Amino acid sequence: MATVNDDAPPTTSKSREMRDAALQTFTETRRDTLLGRTVTINRPRAELYAYWRDFARLPTFMDNVERVDVLSPTRSHWVVKAPGGRTVEWDALVTEEKEGEMIAWASTEDADVPNSGRIEFRDAGDRGTIVTATIVYDPPAGVVGRLIAKMFQREPAIQARRDLRRFKQLMETGEVATSSRTRAQMHEEAA
């Protein structure tokens, strides 16, 4: 009998055991929000892993990330856009890592937005690499904060999907597709 591989993020897997294990791994006793997103990218796993592991490069495709300062091989400082023109900041620690396969992280206790998660890279044969991001975060102000973030398109579930799509574009074509004119260009022309 052939073995069937489930390419879905563990949190959405058809396997009850896999879903339960993912939920137990990523959620804590707080009212955290868990999300998982997957994309297949037509590039070698080692190349994608190496690009992602250089955390200072993440703002090249993560729209809301203003910057990531690498403080050590396992610690980084993140500055991220939030609703209302604000920014939120936190330090993140790499909690587990398998070269070429997976990076797991958790924010430190003083984070503006407590979060943790993992990014996994699995071979997809001729199709390239399956990249799965699983993130747990505790939105500021709970449900109200999540609703406000959603209204401003700053909600992590929306951003994760868009960021993975931009990562795919960057890795497959060498650039992130944008509209013909950016907002900044339109404002310059209007002035």
Rank of each mutant, 00 (worst) to 15 (best):
M62W: 07
V65R: 05
D69P: 11
D69T: 12
V70I: 10
P73H: 06
T74I: 07
T74L: 15
R75E: 11
S76G: 06
V79N: 03
A82N: 03
P83R: 05
G84R: 08
G85Q: 15
G85S: 10
G85V: 07
D91R: 07
T95P: 01
E97V: 02
G100F: 02
M102N: 03
A104M: 10
W105A: 00
S107F: 02
S107T: 07
S107L: 02
T108Q: 14
D110Q: 12
D110K: 13
A111Q: 08
P114G: 08
N115T: 11
N115L: 02
R118A: 15
I119R: 01
R122T: 12
D123K: 12
D123N: 12
G125D: 13
D126P: 10
R127D: 15
T129F: 02
I130R: 08
A133D: 03
V136N: 10
D138H: 09
P140H: 04
P140A: 11
A141T: 06
G142R: 12
V143G: 08
G145P: 02
R146Y: 07
R146T: 09
L147E: 09
L147D: 05
F152V: 14
F152S: 07
F152N: 04
Q153E: 11
Q153F: 15
R154N: 09
E155F: 12
P156R: 08
A157W: 09
I158D: 07
A160R: 00
R162G: 15
R162A: 06
L164N: 03
F167H: 02
K168P: 02
L170V: 11
M171A: 08
